[in-house]
Amino acid sequence: MTILTRKFAFLPAICKLGAKSLLAFTVAAMLVSCEGIFQNIYDNPPPETEEKAGRLLIDASSWNDWYYLDFKALDDSLKKDKRYNPSDAVVRISIPTEETQKSDNPDSQNADGIYVYWYDVYGAGISHNVFQQFIPTETQEEPSAWSVAFHRNNVRTNGASVFETEFTRMEDLPESSLSFADAPFVEDEWNETDVWVLREQMLNGIIGNQGIRTNRVLSNWLTVEIPPIPPAFSLNNHVFIVRLPEGTYAALQLENYQSEKGTKCVLTINYIYPY
């Protein structure tokens, strides 16, 4: 016991000294923010990208919906009210996923339904895929009038065709769409591998896609690559010319595909209608 007392006789003085030192440092350190410094080097963008005539914001991030836009209705609304919000012209309609009848394979080519594919997401990439199963569903509902529809990185048109220009600025476009009259416009075509809807088996590389006609040229404005995981998105900022069935034209450009919080497939679109 005596040995112990002798060994630790210095402790009380040291405890006092330690407490004083800790206090001094604590006071000095109170000057520094507990929640960090240099917060102003980061951006706090406005909650929504500003919309106006010629610029449209569509949150197409949902896997389960198409977002329809009628250029004519939008143009009419803007003519009536210059403060009209272009995104108010967008109509959301869900993708049908409920099975209507039992079937292992589509009875006819291009039948309405969900086409389940396995994708080589961990290996060669999503361009390598194998058909697994067909689930018949109701036909996709559509508004009475519409021009183009958006689903994440997919775009379809209502009987229109699309040409990708080399222009990357709307203001550089020729004055008239007649300049593109002889361009090779491409119509929508059947697609059962890109409109990803059901993702319950996603981790096994299995995705249920809606079988539907999409426009591969216009959909090329936003491409998704897997791997890597999470997917890598890349934007094509070329201006696309849409030739509508009634003979009018629209020019479209994807300006951004992310929300201010970084959510993918929130589309900021520059447009000219009629072009």
């Binding site: 923010s33 960090g36 951006d43 201010e260």
Partner: peptide
């Protein structure tokens, strides 16, 4: 595309 640099994580430690 927008020039925004948006922070989504910050861990600050103050130790004595």
């Amino acid at each position: 595309l927008t020039g925004y640099d948006i922070r989504d994580y910050s861990n600050v430690k103050n130790s004595f």
